[in-house]
Design a protein around this nucleic acid. Structure first.
Lengths: 137, 137
DNA sequence: TATTGTTATACTCTATAACTATA
DNA sequence: TATAGTTATAGAGTATAACAATA
């Protein structure tokens, strides 16, 4: 086998990143999925919970309990859409933004540490290549 | 938030790769973990099952049933180490090597496809950077 | 006593299908 | 009828502890 699997390499790096991320998120009172939800809502509110679930690759039924917790903690709000009262718009609260920002700061510091072995050029190439690989062509 | 999380990017790419890998492995009669075991054994046999479990990030207790299946299918053998009869050396059979090679060929083709949007330089940088990020410093 | 492979068991995560309320 | 959110439940995946054989 001439070359190592790209997927296997990704998995190994992923494992390292997640192992380093878990304690940071725990310290901020967030699970991995909670962090994923808050991150997704940082840019703009989501019109429906279903769209939110799909965009982070989560199941709409599992999302309920997660949103319940985050809402109870005051990190986000669910508001029925006036034009379609079945749908709920999910919005980050100021407290949610603050919590996210605090966690993200620590995570970025950890990631910078992890990426330190790379040269600036490599780092730049990596961070420019990954987004293109992430989305369907 | 100035930049996207490295971890989030990795997760997205990982999701794409795994979605593309699953049907290929199924076609070759392998689960993700089975493929991981065979890949790990490709270079050289493992002296103990415990070492094998650790090196692929799996649980030693869960490994049992997986090895049972792979052994029953004739893809690998477990042999008690003569010097320590508690330990079992796990070795790939010719059939195991053939199955792995067939699967790996298809997976590499899929990966080449997935990496196609990158320039040769980017691809080279990526495949050289990941192994260094994969291992602890 | 400690370790390897193994088994049993409990726990978490995930997917599926059904229910309600709106449309 | 179809869809958004929700609930309930079954199944897969995972972790933990305990056991027998060997060191």
């Amino acid at each position: 086998m001439e070359r190592e699997d790209f997927g296997a390499l990704l998995a190994q790096v992923m494992r390292r990143v997640m192992d380093a991320e878990r304690p940071i998120l725990t310290a901020h009172g967030l699970s991995m999925w909670a962090y994923s939800v808050l991150s997704r809502l940082a840019d703009r509110p989501m019109e429906t919970q279903q769209a939110l679930a799909k965009s982070i690759g989560y199941d709409k039924s599992r999302l309920i309990a997660l949103l319940d917790d985050l809402e109870r903690d005051g990190l986000l709000t669910r508001q029925p859409d006036p034009s379609d009262r079945r749908a709920h718009t999910v919005t980050l609260t100021p407290a949610g933004k603050a919590r996210l920002h605090a966690a993200k700061t620590d995570i970025h510091a950890m990631e910078d540490d992890l990426l330190a072995p790379l040269s600036p050029t490599e780092k730049r190439h990596l961070l420019s290549a990954l987004p293109r690989l992430a989305q369907e062509p």
